[in-house]
């Protein structure tokens, strides 16, 4: 029932689009793929190695999407986030596979 309703709305949308003006789709694939790669890389590395390596990968990979790239800044951010992760593990008791 839900799928049929969705199909109906889809058909109406397709028909409606024939009468609407074309609009340019502002889509920049680079940044979203960098972010997705850093998230997936974090999960894969955390599963197979440990979460500290995952955090370092995520920070270094996601920084490519930023306006500037600095290795020193990335190292500092990685160190801070690792410290936060340790705090979560020790103080809040989160079950993080840090090492």
């Amino acid at each position: 029932m839900v799928s049929s309703l969705l199909l109906l709305i889809g058909l109406i949308t397709v028909v409606r689009s024939r009468f609407d003006q074309r609009v340019h789709l502002d889509f920049n694939p680079k940044n979203i793929f960098i972010i997705l790669a850093s998230l997936c890389g974090f999960a894969v590395i955390s599963a197979h190695l440990n979460m500290i390596a995952g955090i370092v990968f995520m920070v270094f990979c996601s920084a490519f999407a930023g306006t500037s790239y600095s290795v020193v800044r990335n190292l500092m951010v990685s160190a801070s986030l690792t410290a936060v992760a340790f705090a979560f593990q020790k103080l809040l008791g989160l079950n993080l596979p840090l090492y």
Binding site: S38, F42, M58, V59, A63, A65, G66, T67, L81
Partner: peptide
Amino acid sequence: PYNVLFPSILF
């Protein structure tokens, strides 16, 4: 700065 903040948010 956002370049520092967004990796933290992702974390």
